[in-house]
Design a binder for these strands. Structure first.
Lengths: 203, 203
DNA sequence: GGGTCCACATGACATTTGTCATCCCTCATT
DNA sequence: AATGAGGGATGACAAATGTCATGTGGACCC
């Protein structure tokens, strides 16, 4: 009885290559390939998949939300996150969303099939380097609004732009940005954005 | 006689998957896999490769510089760029560096082996969508220094930081940033950075 | 030789940020 | 009932940023 696998990754080339690579394994069968997160839960149910391999960064529904959707729709299906960026915050959030494993795309290819087997058996698979970072990095120090405002600031708009898009007064926006800068340790707004992004506190 | 292929991509998972996928083809033989751009030219020479598949974004030597190095070291070896981000500026720069083909990771996997064969035959392979964008987008309007300063600004430092790292006076830095903002159409420094990055004018 | 473009610089100026104190309101905890 | 945290706001002030005029000097082209 082979492991029924669903793969979701927005880069078609990567998705296809992963499917081809894993399809070679005797005990793994790729039953669906998706380009975004919206249809993942439905595909898992339809094909009664055993494992879902999800990218974190995807258009539409992001991988972490998709993982939660899969867990709700098919509790018996395990989720393995595969991501480009090893952001400590991503790992924690993915685990909270019900993922069983978390590997970065920078790990050797041979370990991938093994990771799929492990999560299928109910084991947890976590990149050890990332796990350590995740412990030291800790949770996001930002409040919900601070995070929202910082995210709104991440594409380079002015305070006035952010205030309009967040329906806040300009003074309030500046206060939140100031707080975010203090908490992240950034000396400018842009630096705070970078730090928060690197830690996976935005999304 | 099979096509001898060198693959360079910083994400081990992707690199391995691509190698596995292309290794399945009868007429393609993967002779080397690299994780960065520094050793590509040497590997091409050592294995007398016919085609080099390079990622644009890599640590150490970036893909475009690596392409130029390959062309210098082994003029008979064709270069096929494979990138995550379809930045118009990347395409133009890659072609000027001597690449024969340029595909984004978002294209169907089946076309990849075909692209390798085409460049090996001396044909050019270019994503049509990207080619069109590249024509409308045009070259970078930034001068060399403006680009350098904007790149230095991209990690969120203050004017004083940039001035120190670029060995310029603060006033000059402000002038360059002002010019860069005018040319990109950005209303703030951060917006200018985003626009320039999206067009592939930095790096 | 004159024109143009770029690198680099200075000084002045208006605007935008970032900081801080201080206020109100709500909700949860003690 | 009191305390504290978070969301939201105002006003004032210092520092940083963005704009502009203007200058020098080198390179390149006609």
């Amino acid at each position: 009885m082979s492991i029924r696998l669903v793969i979701a990754d927005d880069q078609a080339l990567v998705r296809g290559a992963l499917a081809a690579l894993l399809g070679l394994e005797q005990d793994i069968e790729v039953v669906a390939e998706l380009g975004d997160g919206t249809g993942v839960a439905a595909a898992v149910v339809e094909h009664s998949a055993d494992v879902a391999m999800l990218d974190v960064e995807m258009p539409g529904l992001d991988g972490i939300s998709a993982a939660a959707a899969v867990r709700r729709a098919a509790p018996s299906c395990r989720v393995l996150m595969v991501t480009t960026f090893g952001r400590p915050g991503y790992l924690k959030r993915a685990m909270q969303a019900g993922a069983s494993g978390f590997v970065v795309k920078d790990t050797p290819a041979r370990q991938l099939a093994e990771a799929v087997r492990r999560v299928h058996q109910g084991l947890r698979v976590v990149d050890p380097v990332l796990a350590a970072e995740s412990l030291t990095a800790g949770d996001s120090p930002l409040t919900e609004r601070e995070g929202e405002v910082l995210k709104a600031a991440s594409d380079g708009g002015t305070v006035a732009d952010i205030a309009k898009s967040a329906m806040l007064s300009e003074g309030t926006v500046r206060n939140y940005l100031s707080a975010a800068m203090a908490k992240t340790g950034g000396r400018t707004r842009a630096e705070a954005v970078r730090i928060a992004e690197d830690n996976g506190w935005l999304l």
